[in-house]
Design a protein around this nucleic acid. Structure first.
Lengths: 342, 342
DNA sequence: ATTTTCAGCGCAAACGTTTGCATCTCAAAA
DNA sequence: TTTTGAGATGCAAACGTTTGCGCTGAAAAT
């Protein structure tokens, strides 16, 4: 029931030796005699000595802490990434400070400042939707803090990046829809300035072009939430040339589309196919279950963290890695099966 | 492009004054002349001076950081709580270190140790499923670090707690099922040593008793995941005296039940009613949408964090609060409507 | 003209560690 | 007996801040 935690000095005083000796004894420094070392270690164990991480950090100007800036915590994909980050950080002895920007530029800037103040050893970040100025991230790299972007990356800043293969995922999903007979495929996307939006749109368009299907800009809309999808989808369905498939930027949006389509009396996947992106538990709960592009968020977190830590340790001098995580199609109930003949 | 961040000493040297003056100037200390103060603040701004949180923490032996130990990050309820914690922590100027126990006792112990080493200002924790020894948490309070449990609390340790009103929520859900005509209500629960399991089971049983319905232990099973539910539910459905309702400890489990029931050809909610617990996006994706007990995870996080911070500030001396977050029923498609007459 | 007052600033210690260097003690080598 | 040297330990500085106290000089009071 100590009011204040036990320190090296306390041990030194108690054992009538100097703090330096205690420090060395605890590190198994060869200079210290076995008897002293054991006395010290015994005492430390008995009194639950825990090194003061702060003091240590101050000396080395590196606290073993990684800062993470993500748009939303309550979000299957991002929380998966976070879990991956946490896992390797824990293995490597780092703590994880998590900051939620809430898709809010100002808060993102505050987050970045807080992390610099905390003198974190490194930062992992995914951009907020409405971030278009990147000075706060530049400040991080100027402060000599290793920085790795993941998923929603920023191309303006020279640093490592880990992204999902958005282009290939979107291409494959679109191609699959085409192969199962869809010709008018609507694409619901996030704001266009985000890299993921651009890449996925390119994948979508290129797949269409490959099969000589004209890209109809009318079928491309900005819509990335369930509620928006429920509102917007009906107007597509009542048109003469209604789409026969929807490709959604995320599963929430896909679920909203599914809901609206079912309510309109059309059948999924007979009349309309739906493809989501970023597999979550979510996709399993719907009926029929969502076909979606698996993003492997956990693995992305793992890779991003590993990359950052090797950066922190200075193992990868000057090189800027651009890791791409493969996606794959998870075919379930909202799409038709592939015709037998190849 | 400084290799090392700018410090108070740097400013002092540059402006040919002492570090103490700089420090005071930055804090708007009245002892400092206006001209000096402005010179210093100007310089600090121009050079992006950011106070070194570590040094500050070392002095006060309090870093403005809150540690959180949760079983799973990728989990709607827990991530909601985390989001609530993050929000008030940010408002109050605290960072949040998040540790994931992964429902693993050993990792939980390591997490606790790491947080003590980091000298966090306070800890928020929710127990892992298989934790039955609480020494690591006792060590936290012995280290004089304020501790607040939330949701999966531990009654053995004298500290603040924030819980959902599990009993009332379970009671209300069960009562609703009864009022809509259900008589044989199965209850799928988490491991029995958890307080939430006990409380919800009591609510369930008491509601049955209130309506003079015998408690059938055969209808109570340990099952708290989607996959388990899909496996276990069918054997209930084939019995002569099959249940006419299921009350699940969480929505994943409820979704699994729903899936199994639909697959068996029975109708929801006509033949079988289903009630979940802990509202998530999840509950909206299913068809029909899940009726569930809203847990208000975000608010729980907000309250827990507020409580902890007031504890850290020493505002609530010696008192141990036991905050209870109200639940409420979210009635959707997996339950029948209440009959008109009251 | 002398004393008092006080605004404005600097000194130095402290927070808990680590670490290069100095110091001390003996026993072995010279 | 003296020198050498290795083994064991202590000293002190440093990391970046804050803060109690003391110092200085000039204006105000006597």
């Amino acid at each position: 029931m100590k009011k204040t935690p036990i320190t090296i000095k306390d041990i030194a005083r108690e054992l009538a030796i100097s703090p330096s000796t205690v420090s060395r004894a605890l590190q198994n420094h060869p200079d210290i005699s076995v008897s002293t070392r054991e006395k010290v270690q015994q005492y430390a164990r008995d009194h639950h000595y825990k090194p003061n991480g702060l003091a240590l950090s101050l000396r080395t100007n590196k606290n073993n802490t990684i800062g993470v800036i993500i748009p939303e915590i309550v979000h299957y994909f991002f929380s998966s990434v976070l879990a991956g980050i946490e896992e390797v950080s824990d293995e490597e002895g780092y703590n994880v400070i998590v900051c939620q920007s809430g898709e809010n530029y100002d808060k993102e800037v505050r987050n970045a400042g807080a992390l610099i103040s905390s003198r974190v050893s490194g930062v992992l970040a995914s951009l907020s939707k409405n971030t278009t100025n990147y000075d706060h991230f530049q400040e991080i790299v100027d402060s000599d803090i290793p920085l790795v972007f993941f998923d929603r990356i920023c191309i303006g800043i020279l640093t490592d990046k880990v992204v999902v293969d958005d282009y290939a995922g979107a291409f494959a999903a679109t191609e699959y829809l085409i192969k199962t007979g869809c010709r008018r495929i609507a694409f619901f996307s996030s704001p266009p300035h985000l890299e993921i939006s651009k890449n996925r749109k390119n994948g979508y368009k290129d797949a269409l072009r490959k099969y000589k299907i004209e890209v109809d800009e009318e079928l491309i809309r900005i819509c990335d939430t369930r509620d928006e999808a429920i509102n917007i989808t009906p107007e597509f369905l009542t048109r003469d040339d209604r789409p026969d498939a929807f490709f959604a930027i995320n599963d929430q949006c896909a679920a909203g589309i599914l809901y609206a389509v079912k309510r309109s009396g059309l059948n999924v996947p007979e009349d309309i196919s739906i493809f989501g992106f970023s597999d979550g538990e979510f996709a399993l709960a719907s009926d029929p279950m969502l076909s979606t592009v698996e993003q492997h968020g956990f693995e992305m977190g793992v890779h991003a963290a590993r990359l950052l830590i090797s950066k922190i340790k200075g193992e990868t001098q000057g090189k800027y890695t651009n890791k791409i995580i493969k996606t794959n199609l998870k075919l379930r109930g909202t799409t038709r099966p592939l015709p037998e003949q190849l």
